[in-house]
Structures are given as C-alpha cells and as structure tokens.
Design a protein around this nucleic acid. Sequence first.
RNA 1: GUGGGUAUAGCGUAGUUGGUUAACGCGUCAGUUUGUGGCACUGAAGACCGUCGGUUCGAAUCCGUCUACCCACCCCA
Length: 436
Amino acid sequence: MKLVADAIKGTQDALPKESYKWQYIEKVVKSVAQEFDFKEIRTPVFEKTELFQRGVGDTTDVVQKEMYTFEDKGKRSITLRPEGTAGAIRSILEHGLFNDALPIKAYYITSCYRYEKPQAGRLREFHQFGVECVGAKSPVADAEVIMLGKSVLERLGIKNISLEINSIGCPECRAKYTEALKEYFSKYKNDLCETCLSRLERNPMRILDCKSHICSKIAQDAPVILDYLCDECKEHFEKVKNYLTSANVEFTVNPKIVRGLDYYTKTVFEFITTEIGAQGAVCAGGRYDGLAEELGGPSLPSLGFAMGLERALLLMEKQGCPFPQDSVADIYIAPMGEMAQATAIKLCKTVREEGFSAVTDYSGRGLKAQMKYANKIGAKFSMVIGDNEIESGKATLKNMLSGEEIEVEIGNNFANSLYKVCKDSILSEIENTALF
RNA sequence: GUGGGUAUAGCGUAGUUGGUUAACGCGUCAGUUUGUGGCACUGAAGACCGUCGGUUCGAAUCCGUCUACCCACCCCA
C-alpha cells in the first residue's frame, strides 16, 4: 500500500483500540491533581520564540537545536512549545494571576515538540503532564510537588521507580560552584571527552553526568554542589529532605543531577526507571525561583515538574500495570430489511437516551454477518428487528455472554421496557461495569 | 548531528548455496439451504518482496545508494 504521505518522523498515533489507555492515564492524572487542588491550565501549542529563548535558556540544547521554529505570514518567529512551563508562566503573568491568592497551582496535559532523533521513550511529538506551583517559597511546596508526582506514578500502578533529588543552589552559590568545577576539571583537560571539553566553558555541571568512563571517573572526585550551597539554600534543601522523610517518601540524594533547562534553581529531582531503555526519567522537575522575573514579571518563587506520558505508558505496559477495560457497545440492534432499518435507528436513539450505547448495521449485511459483528465488537446485548417484531411490537434481547434471552416491548413502551429489564438487573450489570 | 541493527499482504512471520503463478498464521470479506454470534469447514480479496541503480540468461535472495523504523550516543520528560 502506497500512501500519499505517512506519519511524520517521531510521531505516534493513538489508535481506537488503545486510546482508552491514554484516557485512563489522563483520568488518573487529573484526579490526583485535583486531590492536591491543582487546576488545569491550557495554553497554545505555539508561542513567540523569545519566550523559550528567555525562559528555557538561550544556551540550552533544547533552544539551540531542538525547537520547531518557523516564521508565520506576518514575519513573526513562532515556536512549537518544547516544554510546558514557559507557556504556563507566561500565561499566569500575562493575566496577572499573581494578584489572586498565592500560590497559583496549575497543571496541564499537553503535547510538546522537539526536533530530536527518536529512540525508545523519545519522540518528536510527545505528551507531558506537568504541574506549576507559582508563588510558593516554602520547602513544603517542594515536598508537596514531589509527592504529587509520586502519587500519580503510584496510582498508575508503576513500581520500582526511584526518586533522586539534589539542590543546584541559587544563582549566587551556583556561580561559586561552577568556578570550582572549572578549576577542578581544567586539570584534566587532556583526559576529558570532546563533548565535555566544550562543556567545560559553557556548563561544567554537565560533565558530572557524562556517561564516558573516563569523565565519570574524573567526576568522582569533583567538588560537590552541596558543599557550596549558601546558608539559605542549604537550609531549604535540609527542610525539603526532612519533609519528605517525615512523609515516608523514599529518596536518594544524587549530587550529579543536573537539569538541562536554565531556569532551575535550588531543588531538582527525577523519578527514574531502568526498565524502558536509556531515557529513564519518567518525571522530573524542580524549582525555578527566577523564571517569572526573567520573563518580565514580579519575583515569584515557583516550582513544578513534567511527566513524560509516553514514558509512563511504556513503563506501565512493561510492568503489566492493570488498565481498566475499554468500553464496549451495550446493545447491537440487527435490522432485517428496509422497514426494520428505520425502526432500528429509532430504537438506537431511545437506547442512547437512556444512557446506554447502541450500535446498528451500516453495511446492509445479513443476519449472520451482523451477529458475528456484534460478537466481534463485544456488544453486551443483541436484538433482531424484522417484520415479526415490528408487527408484534416485541423483540428478543439476547445476552451475548450467557446466551440468555428476554422479551422486551419495542413500541412506544420501549424505554419503559428497557428500564424494567434494567431493574431486573440484566442491564444493570452493564452500569456496574461501565468504565467512565 | 554521530554510530549499530532491521526493512516480505492490515498485523506477525517463512522463504538459510539467486531459477518458473512469493508461502503460512492471525485479521478482513463471503459462504456451509429456512431469522441469531463464539467452534469447525470452504472460498475470496489483499504484496510492484522499503527506494533507486548495478551484477546476472534470471534477484525477495548478491553489491551499492537513498529512505524509513528500531536501539545507543547526545539531550531530556
């Protein structure tokens, strides 16, 4: 089969047979967010390019080489969002939401776009669940946000995931630390790998999580950020750890966690798995106390995280996490003949008005083929409508699972008749097993 | 951007020294006599064997090119 065009590289379709999994994840995510009293925010897929240059950081890989940027017909530079935070903060600032009660607690489920080379757990269009907690400087917020992420993961049935946290300090202490790092790594200029050499000037912290054996060996004895934190940052980090501990949230401090987006300050964290390939960060985030100001707003200490939904789904499937069953049609109505088709449509309408799902034939197929179809789509009940039924005003409702048959009226009384069957607990099991 | 692997019907595969109409399973569609599905049986549709080029009397099978997908680096969620 040769199509005019196939899907764009790095994109995925959620097919009808599997989309219920996405719906389930979204449902869980939303209910946990609600438990923490986060409200949904929806922002455009595209923004002015400057937003990401300033927000995410001009020197980051994301901005430098991964953005889908284009000029629109008005010669404006537009970028498909590579992440969710910048847009959310822009929106909050633009609408002056910081004049309301603080903190502002918002969450989103959105698509993001990054021009990367696809691999396991990495796509060009991917989906994130993210939360932003804006105007909250207390370390309590850090603990809460981390716990929110953990709750979602747990509620999805995901196991064996580790939480690693770190503090990368405020701009002041980080500056001192970076100097110390530069000094340290400069001594090993001859041994560092090529990429690390370039990182030495631009972002020496990145050398810490280089996977090259030589670099990581050198990094073992490198200065540790935690020794360079100023008093305030140190205290903040201590409190975050204490709150997590008292809430029984297990974590390990990993001084090598470095986030790749410029806006992060103080607390950073990652929920990590080794089960879905090299891209193990399922959920990651941290503080970004300076972002609001960077974008032209007032000072609003904030934090948040993003969860890669494709990665979460991958993990769930890998671990065999239970998904609730997809919904199936309640009733299949099989018409026989022209007259019956009209009646079937009418009956479907009634069934749907009663809150059930109803399906009928669109192909003019014979009865046998229709029954096969009803069986294949997993319809719970079937009903044949022909001349006999129209004449007598009665039809047989067949339970496709048990084979049991019940007579119902199909005239003006159909709804009542259905309702009665319902009460007799035949259809009520349908209600009990309904998904959403 | 740099590596490695793969590429046969909708899906999953066979075709392992190049030789006639490319095979199988699942799925799809239609039947197996009267108005009832799941099982079984029969039949049908469906593939220019990823692309372009080369070697050869002859290529899905050998060589090269490109493309796509997968995996890893990098980066990140």
